[in-house]
């Protein structure tokens, strides 16, 4: 390994993200390499400087009134209970759906066999058109985000 690789490890060491094995390797190298030792000291200072440069950004703000007034509008208790009862409803609904799946499936496959070739082609075309539209809206959504 050359010094550049060891400097990557020094970054990991200072970030507390180094593996035990790399750490042993690194310290073996630092014992012999004055430049990497200096790099480590410098990087440590740089990290501390960055941290202290951004720490004084905390401003005396009090947004509690504004937040609490919005919270009182949203009525927490009901939200929580509604969520719980929704959960139960969802569970019941999904059980019903799961139980009825085999029935649905068998009725679909029966219907499908009755469909003529032309109808199938139309259905495929229609489906393609729909799915293309879906893609288009998806893309638009992503761009907007």
């Amino acid at each position: 390994m050359d010094c550049t690789e060891y400097r990557r490890l020094i970054n990991e060491l200072l970030d507390n993200e180094i593996t035990e094995r790399d750490e042993i390797d690194l310290f073996d190298h630092i014992k012999m390499c004055e430049n990497c030792k200096i790099y480590m000291v410098n990087m440590n200072k740089l990290k501390l400087t960055i941290k202290s440069s951004f720490e004084n950004n905390k401003k005396e703000v009090d947004l509690s009134h504004s937040i609490m007034s919005q919270i009182s509008k949203s009525q927490p208790k009901k939200v929580l209970h509604i969520k719980k009862s929704y959960n139960i409803l969802y569970k019941i609904a999904s059980i019903v759906v799961i139980l009825s799946l085999p029935l649905l499936f068998s009725s679909f496959s029966k219907k499908e066999t009755k469909v003529s070739k032309d109808d199938t082609r139309d259905m495929v075309l229609e489906h393609l058109e729909n799915s293309q539209n879906k893609n288009v809206t998806n893309i638009a959504y992503v761009i907007e985000k």
Partner: peptide
Amino acid sequence: DASAFEFLILKYQKNIYG
């Protein structure tokens, strides 16, 4: 008890602002 949430706001808003 939504009012209890105000303590959490008061405690952390400065840090979250930063």
